[in-house]
């Protein structure tokens, strides 16, 4: 009960902000629909983060505080992408640079205490590449028919699983931040279904992948989230891209299948986190 009391206010606020923005975009500001999802996720997450963890100074000294700025950067990148519409290669290179900087920032303490410069940069490049692949997977998922609803449905399962796994890994704060994302994704999914919003794509992949990656990295490096769990969570969206049939009247069924596909690695990640957590000594 105490846990719910703690988790609910930031999650509810984040969901309300995201839903309000998405509704405004759907009804009155259709020109901005290409980055509507990104703005809804980013603004919702920022509101929830401030309630849960306080305002984050820039530059941040704590890895957790960088997540706030990752949401901001994700929104800016998605908005710029929607406005400029540069070539795919150029977009990928710029996004890869952003991801590398983000990974370097969040892993700064590892450079100070654990890694040599070469070892650290190798890890940063590998992880940044993984984040780029994650963004591409989410973006591809959204570009499929019924894609935006599928993306938010998949994100709800992904972030919900991450929330449970992070709490089991000893960090209620990181779990709370994942819960904020879950509430946003779930609310956006319901809203898109309800208003049949014409977002396609909505740009949600950029802030979603950057904040999720930041959460999993923080969980893995600064809490006790097993590396395998973090890896499974990161790979889950790729599984959602598996073919599920082509007929257009099966779109809602395809959404259900893709969500179910993602639920499998997410469930394994949660079980692994549960297995790695110490017994409750009550």
């Amino acid at each position: 009960m105490q846990l719910l009391k703690q988790m609910l206010p930031p999650a509810a606020l984040a969901a309300a902000v995201a839903a309000a923005l998405l509704f405004v975009f759907a009804c009155w500001w259709k020109n901005a629909s290409r980055c509507a999802g990104a703005i809804a996720i980013g603004a919702g997450y920022i509101a929830g983060h401030v309630v849960a963890a306080g305002w984050s100074p820039f530059p941040s000294r704590h890895a957790t505080h960088w997540l706030f700025w990752f949401a901001v950067i994700g929104v800016i990148a998605a908005a710029a992408d929607a406005l400029v519409r540069s070539k795919r290669t150029g977009r990928l290179v710029i996004w890869a640079i952003i991801c590398t900087i983000a990974c370097r920032l969040i892993l700064q303490p590892k450079f100070s205490y654990a890694w040599s410069a070469a070892e650290g940069w190798l890890c940063v490049f590998a992880i940044a590449l993984g984040v780029v692949v994650l963004t591409c997977c989410l973006d591809l998922l959204e570009r499929r028919p019924f894609g935006t609803a599928t993306l938010f449905s998949v994100a709800t399962v992904l972030c919900g699983g991450a929330c449970v796994a992070l709490i089991l890994s000893g960090s209620l704060l990181l779990g709370q931040l994942a819960c904020i994302l879950t509430a946003i994704a779930g609310t956006c999914f319901l809203l898109i279904i309800a208003v049949t919003a014409p977002f396609h794509p909505s740009g949600a992949a950029a802030p979603l992948s950057l904040v999720c990656a930041g959460l999993w990295l923080s969980g893995s490096y600064y809490a006790e989230l097993p590396a395998t769990s973090a890896l499974l969570l990161a790979l889950a969206p790729a599984i959602a891209l598996l073919p599920v049939g082509k007929k257009s009247n099966f779109q809602s069924r395809a959404l259900a299948y893709r969500t179910a596909f993602v639920a499998v690695p997410v469930a394994i990640a949660v079980v692994l986190a549960l297995h790695a957590s110490p017994p409750l000594d009550y």
Partner: peptide, 8 residues
């Protein structure tokens, strides 16, 4: 202890 040592 895990909670106290974590980012929380």
């Amino acid at each position: 202890e895990r909670s106290l040592k974590s980012p929380d």
